[in-house]
């Protein structure tokens, strides 16, 4: 027994990592293929499910307006919270913009933030002075698929007032097109 104990350190057991290497190489190639340099990203959550669509047009960088079932974000910064109230007719829970945040159809806080963004973008484009960088009022809209149209309408109206007139609805590619 004592003899065996003495022998152990001399035997060097080497791990064969060739098979592991094979696996890693395959994973590496797969990940490199799905590597994306897309301009926008979607943070999936329970409150934000982007609808599927047959549209194929790739998104381009623009101001990113996200409307989830609980809040509205502009370029990842929360602007206001939405409330859930039971519907007067059906009793189902519906999402809406709180009444005290609105002036008619316009959502005041969102308008201020978007106007800031629009003015900043206009200033940038004036400084750049090229045709490519011209401010066209493009805005990316990521909305939850279950949101009722009146929330979207109010958000769109507000964006329209804040110089954003070209809407780009972000969807997940899928289905026939």
């Amino acid at each position: 027994m004592a003899k065996k104990k003495g022998r152990r350190p001399t035997v060097e057991g080497e791990l064969s990592i060739t098979s592991m290497m094979d696996m890693m190489t395959i994973i590496l190639v797969f990940l490199l293929k799905s590597y994306s340099t897309e301009d926008i990203s979607v943070k999936a959550s329970d409150d934000l499910e982007i609808p599927l669509s047959s549209a194929k047009k790739p998104p381009r960088l623009a101001v990113n307006l996200v409307v989830t079932r609980s809040q509205v974000l502009v370029d990842s910064v929360p602007v206001l919270s939405l409330e859930r109230v039971p519907d007067e007719e059906t009793g189902e829970e519906i999402v809406r913009v709180p009444e005290d945040e609105k002036k008619g159809q316009m959502v005041s806080k969102l308008y201020d933030r978007l106007l800031e963004k629009a003015e900043y973008a206009e200033e940038l484009s004036q400084r750049a002075g090229t045709e490519d960088s011209e401010f066209k009022g493009q805005i990316l809209l990521q909305c939850d698929r279950r949101l009722p149209f009146n929330v979207i309408r109010e958000v769109m109206y507000t964006a329209g007032q804040a110089k954003f007139g070209e809407f780009k609805f972000v969807v997940i590619q899928g289905g026939e097109g």
């Binding site: 897309e38 926008i40 979607v42 982007i50 669509s53 549209a55 194929k56 047009k57 790739p58 998104p59 381009r60 990316l140 769109m156 329209g160 007139g165 070209e166 809407f167 780009k168 609805f169 972000v170 969807v171 997940i172 590619q173």
Partner: peptide, 8 residues
């Protein structure tokens, strides 16, 4: 992702 264009 993809986008659908729309205007007011």
């Amino acid at each position: 992702l993809a986008v659908i264009d729309s205007t007011l």
